[in-house]
Amino acid sequence: MKAMVAVKRVIDYNVKIRVRSDGSGVETAGVKMSMNPFDEIALEEAVRLKEAGTVSEVIAVSMGASACQETLRTALAVGADRAILVETDADLQPLAVSRMLSVLAKREEVSLLFLGKQAIDDDANQTGQMAAGFLGWPQGTFLSSLKVDGTHLVVEREVDGGLESLRLAIPAVLTADLRLNEPRYASLPNIMKAKKKPLETVTPADLGVDPAPRLKVLSLAEPPARAGGIRVPDVATLVAKLHSEAKVI
């Protein structure tokens, strides 16, 4: 069976984002971009299934500007076999992305559609669930463990306060949480090899999807800054302050 993995190009998680002063968005000029960390985990899981012989092919998909090719090359270096870029300058939102992913998953006849549980830029945590809704497939979200059991999957999900185990029929949509695995780094030889792997470019129109956003972002603002605190000289003062001033203990 084939697996598809959606990978998003986002501002690197170590970058302190800066909101543009006119509130129109986040400064991206000269900012380091990387693969969304949750997508790295999703990709790692798919590649491990390929290495175990469970999955025959791993297809990486990204959507957006042509610069997303970099993210796809990273995915190919980690172990994806080929890549598809849905190229568009539209402001892509989860509804359109999940619709396009569902079209691609059907076109490529994949059995497993992997995503990160959320992207660290819009923090929406929607795309996997919506793709599952469009496809009519079962969904295993926020996964901390995944086992293939013949025609089914046994998954463990991170839920508030613990874990939940589900049995899912294949095909299914799966979204990765932090504990699912520890993603590898691409080796230099694999980075070189990735340059020769196939990368197909399509447009939203090719997939029959209108990518226009339904949510209008009116403005983006910095959250209120924390007022500066004080230094305390010793533990006794700290305890006294927490007790009588902050009243939190």
């Binding site: 945590n125 599952a132 809704g133 469009f134 949510l215």
Partner: peptide, 23 residues
């Protein structure tokens, strides 16, 4: 916006063709 709400609402949104608004 618990793990329950986050899990089910986007799926319902897809069935309704609505762009959900998270958290």
């Amino acid at each position: 916006a618990t793990t329950f709400g986050k899990n089910v609402m986007p799926r319902a949104a897809a069935l309704l063709d609505v762009a959900p608004i998270s958290e």
